[in-house]
Simulated assay, not measured.
Amino acid sequence: MVQLRETQREGRTSEKKREILEAASRVFRRQGLHATGMRDIAAELDMAVGNLYYYFRDKEDLLAFIQQTTLSGLRRLAARIEGLDLPADARLWLLLAGHVALLNEETPGSLGHLEVEALGEERRGPIQEGRDAYERTFRRLIDEGVAAGVLQAPDPKVAALALLGAANWSVKWFRPDGGKSAREIGRDLADLLVRGLLAPRRAGNGFASPSLDLLTALLEPSIHPGEEP
């Protein structure tokens, strides 16, 4: 009985934190991340600021939670995609499209994902290690694609960083009411960028982008707020 009550309490806390992240996301988009304070987020929720501090000690605590949640989802998605029995270019497409979709549709408050430097050193270290590990997934897929003759990239690290930079920056310009969903934007961006890396032989034979249905199936289990990256 005690364990059941504890599980229920944890579930309510997780739901409330997601509500807070959704409110923070709206305020971040409206007035900018750096101009947003805890009082602004509390006002968006019609919540006393003291109640907000029950869930997050300060803005850095909130940003750390956003980054931890986002990175956990990205790394689970990457592990799932990397293990698929598909060519490297198709898996790279799925990873890039999934990255955009997860940041902009699945993870509330993901504007905070870019703000690694806003964290203190103690919090920043583990987050940066996780981000580096995630980046290596892109590099492995590019290396594999080059070895298989389906991709071309003189420097896979530069290519990986370019793809990640474009995908991450989407949180700055994506708008939920802009006419396309985050998954559709992810598809379009992945089409543009992955096709730009195709080797001539692969481009000449035609590259069929994976379906949005497959992307959706891969995304569904990716978000579990608060898990370790």
Rank of each mutant, 00 (worst) to 15 (best):
P156R: 02
E184S: 07
A167I: 01
I142F: 01
P176S: 02
A162E: 14
V150E: 14
A182W: 01
I185D: 00
A182P: 09
P176F: 00
I142R: 00
L151G: 05
S170R: 11
V171C: 04
I142T: 07
P156S: 06
A190F: 09
P156W: 03
L189R: 04
S170M: 14
P154A: 11
I185R: 00
L189K: 08
E184V: 11
E184L: 12
A160I: 03
R183A: 13
D188I: 03
R187S: 11
A190R: 03
A166G: 01
L189C: 08
G149Y: 01
K180H: 11
L189E: 10
L163P: 10
K172P: 05
V158N: 14
A167G: 04
W173I: 15
E184I: 03
D143Q: 12
S181A: 13
K172M: 14
A167D: 00
I185L: 14
P154R: 04
F174S: 03
S181K: 04
L161P: 02
A153N: 11
N168S: 07
L161M: 08
D143S: 08
A148W: 00
D155L: 11
V150Y: 01
D143L: 11
Q152N: 11
G149F: 05
G145T: 05
S181Q: 12
I142G: 04
S170G: 04
L141T: 06
A166I: 13
D143T: 07
L164P: 02
D143C: 09
A160C: 03
L161Y: 06
V146K: 07
L151H: 02
A153E: 10
R187A: 11
R187G: 12
E144I: 07
A162M: 15
E184K: 05
R175N: 08
S181D: 09
K180F: 08
K157Q: 11
E144R: 15
W173E: 13
Q152T: 14
K180N: 07
A182L: 05
G179M: 09
V146D: 10
G179P: 05
P176W: 00
D155Y: 12
A190Y: 05
R187L: 13
D155W: 13
G178Q: 13
L163A: 13
G178S: 15
R187K: 14
W169K: 09
V158C: 11
A147R: 14
E144K: 11
G149M: 05
V171P: 02
W169M: 12
Q152D: 12
A166S: 12
L141D: 12
A153R: 12
A190I: 09
E144S: 14
F174G: 01
G149T: 04
D177A: 06
A148C: 02
G178E: 13
Q152W: 09
S181H: 10
K157D: 09
L141A: 10
Q152Y: 08
Q152E: 15
K157W: 04
D155I: 10
G186N: 05
K180W: 03
N168W: 05
R175L: 06
V150H: 03
V146E: 12
V158Q: 15
R187N: 08
F174Q: 03
A190E: 11
V171I: 04
S181F: 08
A153S: 15
G178T: 10
S181C: 08
N168I: 00
A182K: 01
P156I: 02
K172E: 15
W169Y: 14
L163Q: 08
G179F: 06
S170T: 15
S181G: 13
E184T: 13
E144W: 08
G145D: 04
N168M: 01
G149I: 04
L151S: 05
